[in-house]
Amino acid sequence: MAILKDFQYHAPESVDEALDLLRRSGKPVLLAGGTFVLNTLKKAVAYPTDVIALRKIKALQGIADTGEGISIGAMTLLSDIASSPLIRERASVLARAAACVATTPLRHMGTIGGNVASRFFWVDLPAALVAVGAKVEWAAGSGKKVLDIEKFLALKGPDAKGILVRFLIAEKHPVGEYFRHTQAMEVDLPLAALAFAARKQADGLKDVRLVVNTALSPVVRLKSVESLFENTKTSRLKEKEAAAALRRDLEGGKLDDYRLQCLCGDMEALVERLKRAKT
């Protein structure tokens, strides 16, 4: 017996063609690496009439230095993000987070676009993308626009229907760390994660961004910790002070003790690492 029920498969070659198919099809679904989509279809009650594959659209592919920053096509594989020298150098937290997603074969199949567009709270990349101040190029019925990643993540209902074309990272964040907790094994889904990105100068840390993924709600920026770190020399940072600021930042969020303890531990480990690092 066939594993999946029937649908019409399309492989458009341009964003406009894909948008047109999205508009014209009864119940369409976009297909990137398929690691979410095809799993879901095996159990789906609301089945799509049309599957629109994005693999032939050139605008969605590749990692490039645009002169103004890095451009990452939405169809870029997680394994290519994890190993890209450009991303490691300028947005190392993103490379680190991509290397933590799922398992080796799933990273050879899953894409950055599918990760973010899935809009599940628990996925790994949104926290890292917020940490590096990424923007997204978004094509929808209303036209093409560039949005801050946080704005994109907040889109809902019909506004959230469209095609992620690419991610743009303008600022350089060579210092980056990604901490992640799972229930049992390293390859399990994240329960909580902490993403950190910054630049380091002689007079202190600059453009500091700290973002938490609790897997329960949208990612949260740690504004108190960020202001504690900004313009501060790493030798002056204090583990307990940083953990206390993190608790303040997460106070209203009704976070369970286990996750909170994990994240406080990460914060202390981060400060320790920053103090130890020579460059």
Binding site: L31, V51, A53, M109
Partner: peptide, 16 residues
Amino acid sequence: LLDGNNVLSCLILTLE
């Protein structure tokens, strides 16, 4: 293997 990378054939459409 797909172009030399290990992938999962239970999560790939043949057309892809």
